[in-house]
């Protein structure tokens, strides 16, 4: 069964159709990439999935359950995590606290137990600290765990952003351009992390990225958007040969006689 099914989703802002009748499916345990030129509607698509936008029509199903109309914070507890394109970390908090926030829905402590910090609440903090430390180890951030995120360099912030999504132990992770603005060695690290989380933890990855080399190497399936329309869907090989995709990226060859 597909883990995430997007069917005929459309949304418009004023006269602009940001998404026009887009459909595709994510199978459990695959790396899926959504590509397209700037302004094609990729981030709008993610916003529809995580609940920041409400599509005008269509349906988005997570494990068979319709999630359109569900509040964003409820979708998180289903197991959908997201890393933002323009880093949206909690700048004044340490890396550790940012990651712990990623586990917010997995924790229970309320106003009273938090305030007393005794017995169950303390045990909970320690248990979740264990899980968070695993993410820290996985992303190789041991030396910065107590550093306030605001003071970190860009590349590390991106990594914390991915870490915060991973801390949720999600079934699907939505990564919005996790490698934007990185140099090639940082990109290599990030690609390795994506492959590892996919292989070791069996997380389904939904990736938005501009670097074609990375996309073609990592992805199992690719969907291509252009001006809100899906113009291609398939394996990397199929996409590379798709004439519509080539047209969108390279333009049309002029007919010369």
């Amino acid at each position: 069964m597909s883990i995430l099914e997007v069917e005929n989703v459309s949304i418009q802002f004023g006269g602009v159709k940001a998404l026009d009748d887009v459909s595709y499916k994510l199978e459990k345990g695959e790396i899926f990439s959504l590509i397209g030129p700037n302004g094609a509607g990729k981030t709008s698509m993610l916003n529809c999935i995580s609940g920041l936008y409400k599509p005008a029509s269509g349906s988005i199903r997570f494990k068979g359950q319709e999630i359109i109309g569900m509040k964003p914070y409820k979708r998180t507890s289903l197991g959908i995590a997201r890393a933002f394109q323009n880093i949206a970390l909690f700048e004044h908090m340490s890396v550790l606290d940012n990651l712990k926030l990623g586990r917010h829905v997995k924790m229970k402590a309320g106003l009273f137990s938090s305030g007393l910090y005794w017995g169950a609440a303390e045990k909970e903090e320690v248990n979740h600290r264990h899980s968070v430390e695993q993410v820290i180890e996985f992303l190789e951030m041991q030396d910065i765990r107590h550093t306030p995120v605001g003071t970190l360099p860009y590349g590390l912030k991106k990594r914390v952003e991915v870490g915060r999504a991973l801390a949720l132990e999600p079934e699907v992770i939505l990564l919005d351009e996790p490698m934007a603005g990185m140099n090639s060695s940082e990109k290599e690290d990030m690609a390795r992390f994506i492959l590892d989380m996919h292989e070791l933890n069996g997380i389904t990855v939904f990736l938005i990225e501009h670097d074609m080399g990375v996309i073609m190497d990592l992805s199992d399936k690719i969907a291509v958007l252009d001006f809100g329309k899906r113009i291609g869907f398939g394996t990397p090989e199929e996409i590379q040969e798709n004439p519509d995709v080539i047209k969108a990226y390279l333009g049309e060859q002029e007919v010369t006689t």
Binding site: Y73, T76, A88, M93, K100, L101, H104, V105, A109
Partner: peptide, 19 residues
């Protein structure tokens, strides 16, 4: 947990929602 959520609301409310 509760206090971290307060701080998250202050720093980035959109991200807090997604968390």
């Amino acid at each position: 947990r509760t206090g971290r959520a307060f701080l998250a609301v202050r720093d980035r409310d959109v991200a807090a929602q997604i968390m």
